[in-house]
């Protein structure tokens, strides 16, 4: 019998609209994510610890955390970036490219949101390495699509570092019965989903304890 206490994943949400920031923050929190919101691509890069090009080398020397993020800007690891596509200045597409071009950030999954259902835009983002494209307004049901990308990214990270810790996705995919215990009553609507027989993937929050027998 293994007992695994799962951490709460941290999502960085980027949107220039205050209405959409408030909405995405609430959606993510309701889905048990830890959330930081910023209103532009450049602030997102700043939060991620990626500053000017010439400073990058110097910064990489300071890098010590597993995610490869700068230690002075970044005290908490970012597990996923979700960004609006259409923003003044740096667009979501530009932000995606910067993240994927950076050796220290490229393993962070990026999800693009857009109100325009434009196939060329969607394929451009996916080709550039976006993990998912969500049509706005984003809904609570869309939030279920985030975790698999985070877990996939974590597997990659862990393989890279030759760590012996079993990857979360392997544990939940195992055929043994999975029991999810401990939850706050305020997320009752989410519980209905997670406890449904077809969705046995464990939830991950600081309050959640996954017990595998």
């Amino acid at each position: 019998m293994t007992i695994v206490a799962e951490p709460q994943f941290h999502v960085l949400a980027v949107d220039d609209s205050i209405i959409d920031r408030k909405l995405i923050e609430r959606l993510l929190k309701t889905s048990s994510f830890q959330v930081t919101t910023v209103d532009s691509g450049s602030k997102a890069l700043e939060f991620l610890g990626l500053v000017e090009q010439e400073e990058e080398e110097q910064q990489q020397q300071q890098t010590s955390s597993t995610s490869g993020l700068s230690s002075y800007h970044q005290e908490i690891e970012v597990n996923l970036v979700i960004t609006d596509y259409c923003m003044p200045g740096m667009t979501g597409y530009d932000l995606l490219k910067k993240i994927k071009e950076s050796s220290s950030l490229k393993n962070i999954p990026v999800i693009i949101m857009s109100s325009e259902n434009a196939p060329s835009r969607i394929s451009r983002c996916l080709e550039e390495g976006a993990d998912e494209f969500l049509l706005k307004p984003v809904k609570l049901s869309d939030m279920k699509k985030l975790r698999p990308h985070i877990l996939k990214g974590k597997c990659k990270d862990q393989q890279k570092q030759h760590q012996k810790i079993t990857c979360s996705i392997d544990i939940t995919a195992a055929p043994s019965p999975t029991l999810v215990a401990g939850s706050a009553s305020k997320r009752k609507s989410m519980e209905d989903d997670t406890l449904a027989p077809q969705r046995t993937r464990a939830r991950f929050s600081s309050e959640t304890l996954t017990v595998i027998i």
């Binding site: 209405i19 408030k22 909405l23 609430r26 959606l27 309701t30 307004p137 809904k139 609570l140 305020k186 997320r187 609507s189």
Partner: peptide
């Protein structure tokens, strides 16, 4: 959808948005 994002801690969420 916005109304479902309300809970005991945030009863005014829809009105705020």
């Amino acid at each position: 959808e916005i109304q479902t994002l309300r809970d005991e801690d945030n009863p005014n969420f829809p009105a705020e948005v």
